[in-house]
Design a protein around this nucleic acid. Structure first.
Length: 370
DNA sequence: CTGGATGATTTGTG
DNA sequence: CACAAATCATCCAG
């Protein structure tokens, strides 16, 4: 193994010397060159010479490169690390999903109050997928970094026998390599962060996760709406009550009434059936409860035993609606409906005060006469 | 897959 | 800020 490599400067000198004497006279052939190198290597002054050369190098080239810029990237890396840690990506995959899952759930601020454990499990699954990819990639990078570092270190150590390479220089080179790999790692972290952010916005955006209200909530809201049809603007207190009864938030109640008003007004015909259902229900309730008189109190929601603080107009509204429906059946056109609705809520004055059976059939009449 | 229903958001107004 | 109107995005029955 030692003797086969004729070009190796570290092979046995005697053999090489013999070869040289026999074959070559030229000063430029490789054998001669190897011989000179060998002579230099064996020179007793070599260590001292290399040490001096290393010193000079240190003072010139390396001195300049020595001042590395690592300032701004460090802060960014820390930020990314913090975020990944906060999102639960930095931690390795864990099996026991006891309190950790709950912690992940509570970490989402301002979530919708509805039950969305299903979405959360989906979210967690996707997050775990990202985490897996992240860790496998990170491992790959680390391995590549290790391999490359040892490779370069070995190479430099090998070369240090032939040219002046100080251990400090090797160390520095390792640092440079780590710096380069860190940049790649930062890119990985950055893209992982982006993926998590996208996932978050996709899964936790309330608008995208629209859920239809429960039957109970719709019922409660519709009951109030149709029993206050002349003035379907619940007070803050009423909204809170409705929210409580329907298991939704106050802002959801406000949204619902906003949508309902506009849609009802836009197309009253479409809501005829619904209106009939709820108004007859109201009528039945009022007659059942206040058989004598609906003057003092008229519970709009029979489901709850407590008396509600709603405006006391349900009986009148129910009458108006029924009357409206009766007249609507007689008139085929839908054009009149709009004008009537408009005059009711935003026109001149709400007919709430005129709860009399002879309300305002004027518009209907005028339309019918057309 | 599609159209209507529906909850949420945006924009404009008083 | 509350509301109207328009619009967006999703749900869901057919």
């Amino acid at each position: 193994m030692v003797t086969v490599l004729s070009g190796d400067p570290y092979s046995t000198p005697d053999v090489l010397g013999e070869q040289l004497k026999k074959t070559c006279l030229s000063s430029s052939c490789s054998a001669c060159w190897n011989d000179r190198k060998h002579a230099l290597n064996c020179h007793r002054m070599k260590p001292a010479l290399f040490s001096v050369l290393c010193e000079i190098k240190e003072k010139t080239v390396l001195g300049i490169h020595g001042i590395q810029e690592e300032g701004p990237s460090n802060a960014q890396l820390m930020r990314l690390d913090n975020m990944l840690l906060a999102e639960g990506v930095s931690r390795p995959e864990r099996r026991g999903r006891g309190g950790s899952a709950a912690a992940a759930n509570t970490a989402t601020p301002g979530g919708c109050p509805n039950d969305n454990s299903l979405e959360h499990s989906d979210y967690r699954a996707k997050l775990s997928q990202i985490r897996q990819i992240y860790h496998s990639e990170l491992e790959k990078y680390e391995q590549a970094c290790r391999e490359f570092t040892t490779h370069v270190t070995n190479l430099l150590q090998e070369q240090s026998r032939m040219r002046p390479v100080s251990p400090k220089e090797i160390e520095r080179m390792v640092g440079v390599i780590h710096g380069k790999f860190n940049a790649i790692q930062m890119q990985l972290k950055q893209s992982t962060c982006e993926a998590v952010m996208t996932l978050r916005s996709r899964f936790l955006d309330a608008r995208r996760k629209r859920r239809n209200f429960s039957k109970q909530a719709t019922e409660v809201l519709n009951e109030y709406f149709y029993s206050h049809l002349s003035n379907p603007y619940p007070s803050e207190e009423a909204k809170e009550e409705l929210a409580r009864k329907g298991g939704i938030t106050v802002s959801q109640v406000s949204n619902w009434f906003g949508n309902k008003r506009i849609r009802y007004k836009k197309n009253m015909g479409k809501f005829q059936e619904e209106a009939t259902i709820y108004t007859t229900k109201m009528a039945v309730d009022t007659t059942k409860v206040g058989g004598l008189r609906s003057q003092a109190s008229c519970p709009s929601t029979p489901s709850s035993g407590s008396s509600d603080p709603f405006p006391l107009t349900s009986a009148g509204d129910a009458l108006i609606t029924l009357q409206t429906l009766a007249s609507l059946r007689r008139t085929p056109a839908g054009g009149s409906l709009r004008s009537q609705a408009k005059s009711g809520w935003q026109g001149a004055a709400p007919p709430a005060s005129t709860a009399s059976p002879a309300g305002d059939p004027g518009s209907v009449h005028s339309d019918a006469s057309n």
